[in-house]
Nucleic acid binder design. Structure first.
Ligand SMILES: [Mn+2]
Ligand SMILES: [Mn+2]
Ligand SMILES: [Zn+2]
Ligand SMILES: [Zn+2]
Lengths: 144, 144
DNA sequence: GTGTAATTGCAACATAGTAGCATTTGACGC
DNA sequence: GCGTCAAATGCTACTATGTTGCAATTACAC
């Protein structure tokens, strides 16, 4: 719908992955790019509305699925059973994450995943490792 | 309901944590002790039924919550959004876990959690770390 | 045995996500 | 620009997983 959607970094990213340039797709990716942390489906929906983007719940789910499938975004499940989405900056987010066990917030941490030396049972195939630090975030630690 | 529920390891464990010895509680813990892996609420329910233990869905949820609160069991969330429960053998399961991204199965791995040297943002409090290995389990790798 | 708080069972509710299908639209060739 | 058509959308239902409120039951201390 914008005159030149390709002009934005979001549009470029989407096009680079062979996806159609749709209003919701671009808007969602812009939200993810602007966010400093992983966001839930709901949080993204609220952000879209704030940006004046009318959208459907299901379309948003499908848009997020597409972004993940295309490798543009990554998805992780929080202790609150909600999936959170973020831009996949370099590969499938090979960095540790912090999960706030109070509010569910997830933040990406700097630094590489530690080298793992764990032996798997026979026949098991390893795809990737994930290091989670669980605790309480700054705002939850203060607040009630 | 059994004549001497204290006689079983399950009964002993529950009593040691100051909990009332109820039929479902003992039966659930026995299922967890017998399982070689973490089980979902549903899988535990099926196991109970197979053992002839009539039970209520909600009671099972509450029983599992109690076991986790008492530190007898631990709970983790899988990529399929289902919580899985296992006996907490030594502390809050300080060992790595393997998650099958195909069927959701979770298995506890031997070995200790690697020492982590990640710096958290200011004000964040770290409670525990969790190392997840993602991949495909042996049965999923064979089967369709 | 009795009293009482913990536990259960049931029905209703909540949240997060998925499926089917008719309608709309982005991209492509002209 | 214009027609074509698969990809994407917007609905409406539906599923899976877990929670709440409350009256009835039960384990256990006495
Ligand atoms: Mn990340
Ligand atoms: Mn474990
Ligand atoms: Zn928090
Ligand atoms: Zn599997």
């Amino acid at each position: 719908m914008p005159d030149h959607p390709h002009a934005s970094p979001a549009g470029t990213l989407i096009a680079a992955h062979g996806g159609r340039l749709t209003r919701t797709r671009v808007a969602v990716l812009e939200v993810l790019l602007a966010a400093g942390q992983s966001l839930t489906h709901d949080e993204i929906g609220v952000a879209l509305s704030r940006n004046g983007i009318k959208h459907d719940r299901v379309t948003l789910y499908r848009t997020l699925d597409w972004l993940v499938g295309a490798g543009v975004a990554h998805r992780m499940i929080g202790n609150d059973r909600a999936r959170r989405f973020g831009v996949a900056v370099s590969g499938p987010h090979e960095h540790p994450h912090f999960h706030c066990d109070r509010c569910g917030k997830v933040v990406c941490l700097e630094g590489a995943q530690p080298a793992v030396a764990v032996s798997l049972p026979g026949g098991y195939r390893l795809d990737r490792t994930e290091l989670l630090l669980h605790g309480v975030c700054a705002s939850c630690d203060k607040g009630p």
